[in-house]
Design a protein around this nucleic acid. Structure first.
Length: 661
DNA sequence: CTGGAGCGTCTTTTT
DNA sequence: GACGCTCCAG
């Protein structure tokens, strides 16, 4: 979207009630049409860089200026960062009057609804959220109990199937009923036991958050009516990436006439079918709502014509797409650069050198991005950047929370809030070692499940748990006492004090400190950073629950801060919705992009192509493609081929670069 | 039964 | 190159 518009919004501050003219300032005719559309369903087909965030922002502002209550607007985005940006920009337009808009992700919205409504339905609203590591841990337990080998039934594969079932709103019974193959019947068994285990510890996984919300709305018409009335205007960003459950959720909320649902999407940017995203949702919106109004945004405000042409030629090779072509008023542009490297290291050297040059020429480092297919590719670029002392930041908020010591710290905190969180107990019971190993854990866990008591209570009553030795009983009681004591203080004490106290008194900090110094230093630094974020959360008035929720639902982009002057590295998926002056698309090789696991299946191959399309269209002015003739794979060097996608871009748009750049 | 040392094993993409 | 898992001593 045009820069001047963004800045004028940001500069507006807490403007008083703006009139329609302000809200429509600088918009082109189709954008105005989308923003001012009245009651009823609206489909906005918005190409890359066509200003869809601006349209979404202005539409929310427009609705509120027309008298819609801010608390009645639900604007669903894909990432927390996008939600924050939406909120900030709406506030810039409307000031105080924007307070109360529901701008959040599907998952956050569902957590909010579930926490508010489950208690009225006789269920717990204090559930914990299981992330993928927790899920894997649980699934391994399930497989052990069902006597299925992990070799034959990889936990990840089973979980993928279960996730797919939940995305389609199929519970364990429905899945079992539909199971045809032998494998599926095994998955069905695992699914059923897995759900039982989740329930036992009062936990929901990511997919449950959506599915449970939908089921609740389906089963309790009174709740549905309440939310239909409350959230009278629903807007969905990145609609092409919604799965069936998410589709059903928005459909339910908007099922009362006049169906005030506005969705924004682009079928060419659908890159999440592996997660159940169904491109048909956007292609069939018109069928679901025959009366819907359709607006197409085809003017691109981001990239040069050369970049758009290259991207269009590429994506045109997809058969399953709506025909359309972006255009821009900015003609021409520099050719798309392409560099053939000798090796992965050479590729990293070249890119780092180019980045240095660009920065010298005045391009802000934070507006330069290196995008790749798989996370593992970041390493060689990181190494090169470190060697050259170039600042960079990796788009992977999740990675931070996935580090073992951070997960441990989170688990300690979770034990203070979620009384039955056995997965967390499992993590921390022997970190540091206190004489309680896996066998002791099993006994304690069994007691929690059978007696229905909390973890802290079970530990405190360790004397009654069969099979524990005297020293173990003592250690368990001590640990239980500590948990209970800190949990009680946590209610009044600042978050970061609680964190420090539990990590200190449990011996975790000392335990980390005693590790190999070269590991310990980084880990303690991470923990320090984590405690700072707890302090910030406390200062923002967040509760322990808010904080832990944020940790669970944090996403890749959340730690991307444009103000930090560092070059951005991230996967193509994580670059969704972002834009940069210069983009380096690296590792364009057969096997990487398209990924080896996608070749052979036309649908997956088309998705890989869209992924490349998304990457290319992130670039405003400079786009550079690189690949290497050899690459260090698992073991040993291997020769590779240039990605087929490169040859789908017309030669005349490309400029070949050699070693010296 | 716990806890440390060493060995194979993977690495698509994510809320 | 990080991690989980197995094996073995205490």
């Amino acid at each position: 979207m045009p820069r001047d518009r963004q800045t004028s919004e940001k500069a507006a501050g807490g403007a008083p009630a703006p009139d329609t003219e302000d809200i429509l300032k600088g918009l082109n005719p189709p954008q105005v049409e989308a923003v001012t559309h009245g009651e009823g369903p609206l489909l906005i087909l918005a190409g890359a860089g066509s200003g869809k965030t601006t349209v979404l922002t202005r539409r929310v502002a427009y609705l509120i200026s027309q008298g819609v209550h801010p608390g009645s607007v639900l604007a669903i985005t894909f990432t927390n960062k996008a939600a924050d940006e939406l909120k900030t920009r709406i506030e810039a337009l409307l000031g105080e009057r924007a307070k109360g808009v529901w701008a959040m992700t599907f998952h956050s919205a569902c957590v909010r609804i579930l926490r508010a409504e489950l208690p009225h339905l006789g269920r717990s609203g204090g559930f914990s959220i299981a992330d993928d590591q927790d899920q894997t841990k649980l699934m391994k337990q399930v497989l052990r109990e069902l006597d299925l080998s992990e070799k034959q039934y990889p936990p990840g594969g089973i979980l993928h199937n279960i996730s797919g079932a939940k995305d389609n709103l199929l519970g364990p019974e429905e899945y079992a009923r539909d199971a045809l193959t032998f494998y599926q019947t095994k998955v069905a068994q695992a699914y059923s036991l897995y759900q039982k285990k989740l329930q036992e510890q009062d936990s929901l996984d990511f997919d449950d958050l959506i599915m449970e919300t939908v089921l609740m709305l389906q089963r309790h018409p009174d709740v549905l009516v309440k939310y239909q009335a409350k959230l009278s205007h629903v807007l969905v960003d990145e609609y092409q990436d919604t799965n069936h459950a998410q589709y059903e959720l928005t459909r339910l909320l908007a099922s009362a006439p006049p169906h005030n649902i506005a969705v924004v999407g682009d079928d060419d940017q659908s890159i999440y079918t592996f997660r159940g995203a169904d491109i048909r949702n956007i292609l069939e919106f018109e069928r679901d709502y025959p009366e819907c109004h359709v607006v197409k945004l085809e003017q691109n405000y981001r990239s040069t014509q050369v970049i758009l042409d290259g991207a269009w030629h590429l994506v045109s090779n997809n058969i399953k797409r709506k025909d359309k072509r972006l255009w821009t008023a900015r003609e021409g542009g520099l050719p798309i650069a392409i560099y053939a490297a000798q090796s992965g290291e050479d590729e990293a050297r070249f890119v780092a050198g180019e980045v240095e040059q660009l920065v010298l020429r005045g391009v802000r480092a934070s507006s330069i991005a290196i995008l790749y297919r798989v996370n593992a590719q970041s390493r060689q670029f990181e190494d090169e950047f470190v060697a050259r002392r170039l600042p960079y930041s990796v788009l992977s908020g999740r990675r931070f929370y996935e580090r073992k010591h951070i997960k441990d710290a989170v688990s300690y905190m979770r034990l203070l809030l979620y009384p039955k969180d056995l997965v967390s107990l499992d993590r921390v019971l022997s970190e540091p070692s206190r004489g309680l190993g896996p066998a002791a854990f099993d006994k304690i866990a069994a007691h929690v499940r059978e007696a229905g008591v909390s973890v802290a209570d079970a530990l405190a009553a360790a004397a009654y748990i069969k099979g524990l030795t005297a020293p173990q009983r003592k250690a368990a009681a001590e640990f239980g006492g500590l948990l209970a004591e800190v949990a009680a203080k946590a209610e009044t004490q600042p978050l970061h004090h609680t964190m420090n106290e539990i990590l200190e008194r449990s011996g975790y900090l000392r335990y980390l400190d005693a590790q190999d110094p070269k590991d310990a230093q980084g880990r303690l630094e991470d923990l320090n950073e984590f405690m700072v974020s707890a302090r910030v959360a406390h200062e923002n008035g967040e509760s322990l629950q808010d904080f832990l929720e944020k940790c669970s639902l944090a996403s890749e982009q959340d730690n991307y801060d444009e103000k930090r002057e560092s070059c951005v590295m991230g996967t193509l998926h994580s670059a969704k919705g972002l834009e940069f002056e210069a983009v380096f698309l690296v590792g364009l090789e057969e096997g990487l992009l398209p990924h080896a696991r996608s070749v052979g299946d036309n649908h997956q191959l088309e998705e890989e192509r869209r992924l490349m399309y998304v990457g290319m269209t992130r670039a405003k002015r400079l786009l550079c493609l690189t690949f290497s003739w050899t690459r260090q794979m698992n073991l040993g060097q291997s020769g590779v081929h240039v990605s087929r996608f490169v040859s789908e871009i017309p030669r005349e748009l490309l400029e070949v670069r050699t070693w010296e750049g």
